[in-house]
């Protein structure tokens, strides 16, 4: 066994309830995993933002009308070149194509509806399940900027 090599990847499955302390702890875990692989500041900013928005959407929209104790499942996989974060809520799901584009002139002054577009902007790709209650966000590392 080769000595002192770090892990090839870090994988975690976390069930979160809508409790800020728990969300913060999960976020700290994500950032810690990114640090272990030396992800740069810009990548950490992007991934943290996407994580926050996905969790907010899951509880605010996905779990609307559900018990506050209903958990959202987070599956995290961090490797040297790629980060994957899946967020699955227990709601009925939604159609991503039905979300209005918040950057259109007529929507600029609408206070809501920017979370999904920010996730799209900052992550390399998004995959939704058919039901629309699970999103997998993938960030591919490209250290051209700090």
């Amino acid at each position: 066994m080769p000595p002192s090599h770090g892990p090839e990847s870090i994988e975690r499955r976390i069930d979160l309830t809508n409790d800020r302390a728990l969300i913060h702890r999960a976020e700290t875990e994500v950032l810690g995993a990114l640090d272990q692989f030396g992800y740069p500041k810009a990548a950490k900013f992007a991934i943290r933002l996407a994580f926050e928005e996905a969790i907010t959407n899951a509880f605010k929209h996905g779990h609307k009308g559900l018990s506050a104790s209903a958990p959202v499942r987070v599956e995290l996989a961090v490797g040297p070149d790629q980060v994957s974060i899946a967020v699955e809520d227990q709601g009925p799901g939604f159609s991503p194509g039905d979300v209005p584009d918040p950057t259109l002139d007529e929507n600029l002054e609408v206070p809501t509806g920017r979370g999904l577009m920010l996730i799209r902007a900052y992550m390399t790709r998004l995959e939704f399940n058919d039901a629309g209650n699970r999103v997998r966000m993938v960030f591919e590392r490209n250290d051209t900027s700090e």
Partner: peptide
Amino acid sequence: DHLSSAALGTLITINN
């Protein structure tokens, strides 16, 4: 260091 889309929404409401 960080803000969310909810924070942007609040800024828009204040601006309006």
